[in-house]
Design a binder for these strands. Structure first.
Lengths: 212, 212
DNA sequence: AATTCCAGAGAACAGTTGTTAACTGCATGG
DNA sequence: CCATGCAGTTAACAACTGTTCTCTGGAATT
């Protein structure tokens, strides 16, 4: 299916990935709008001009990072929302999955949270687009649930957006716990999980009584 | 009560405010971590070194902006949450108030949304602190409501945080509508208001059935 | 009226930035 | 095997950055 890349293309993609990785690391302590192109190439150990072989600008690199951070997340969303089991079990399962993701890709989560309202318009738009896709997918899954019978399309999308925002907010809180002092980490993580669980439970309750 | 400031102090506060205003304007198209001190003084028409008479750094200025943007908002929050009237009326009243605020201080709203997860730690912390105070105040108001009888402190605070996040998210959406093309503005604004109203209604429903 | 204080100006610093042009060496396709 | 393509290099550019030190004019204090 996929044609094996030549030595040339492989090497190119390798440095491209190195640029993305270095940028993501540098973005832990600043925003994209202050990220310099030379800063990134210096971190990779490559000439500044090499940057242009891969990206037009740092904004362009940012859009690529959005793709990397959110693009591969769609299947996970789908399977999570449509997971079977007890109501309470589904809540804890979802939160646990978010916690795991934050743990595995903290820099990606921070990048999205930071640049969602950040100073670089094309990046904001890219994130908005991806999140809109998420909301759409969540809506599709919600629609399958018998609880959603009689719901209008608008209301389903409204609920989906609420869930997506909730997930992002929770992810951000997990990240804060992760960045705090190590000895407080387990306790803070537990608190965040508890808070998120209660909020999801409350939203779930509102969902069940929506058509009263 | 307040001692009238001398000519000296008055002039100083005037340039200080000019620096804050210029910074806020410049931050419409970038993040604080990329805001240069010279950039700000140039916009005001003052020597770069004058900056140090007022702020240690741009991060310091950022913290002052947080104070300006959120500090004066507490009374408004209190009166809004504890407003009387029909359930549905309270929802629309609150949303209308948010819309008005975004309309009146768009730059402030953008600044908070942008720097809440931004690249400057002291500013993030200042925002977090102010929002935590908001949540606390909302909790206090919620506690007075007879609907909250039997609620634990944790649950009240949980709900308060949910409301605060919801308000911020709504404000950000209003801002996007405001920044979009002028001919779409009324329609987009209406949609945002409708979305926010439904979400608040759903959360209110969950609130009423919390103790089932 | 004489003195102190201090917001802001001015000049200079070493270091940084994005972008250009012309180059080199090696993988690739004919 | 040779010619082309192209990822990455080198060098140079004008413009910009934060920070230091010295200075000045006028308000504040005595």
């Amino acid at each position: 299916m996929s044609h094996t890349l030549g030595i040339r293309q492989a090497q190119k993609q390798k440095t491209r990935q190195a640029l993305l990785d270095a940028a993501l690391a540098l973005l832990e302590e600043q925003s994209l709008s202050s990220l310099g192109l030379r800063e990134v190439t210096r971190a990779v150990g490559v000439a500044p001009t090499a940057f242009y072989r891969h990206f037009r600008s740092t904004a362009d690199l940012g859009v690529a990072l959005v793709e990397e951070a959110l693009g591969s997340l769609h299947p996970m969303i789908r399977t999570t929302v449509s997971t079977t089991g007890d109501r309470e079990e589904r809540v804890t399962r979802t939160i646990d999955l978010i916690a795991r993701h934050v743990d595995g890709y903290p820099a990606h989560v921070r990048f999205i949270a930071r640049e969602r309202h950040g100073g670089v318009q094309p990046v904001r738009e890219a994130i908005r687009e991806q999140l809109a896709r998420f909301a759409q997918e969540v809506k599709d899954e919600l629609a399958k649930d018998p609880v959603s019978e009689g719901w209008s399309e608008d209301d389903l999308l409204m609920l989906a957006h609420l869930y997506v925002d909730q997930m992002l907010s929770t992810a951000s809180l997990f990240l804060e716990a992760l960045e705090g002092p190590e000895e407080e980490r387990p306790e803070r993580t537990r608190q965040v999980a508890q808070l998120a669980a209660r909020q999801m439970r409350l939203i779930g309750l509102g969902r069940h009584h929506w058509l009263d």
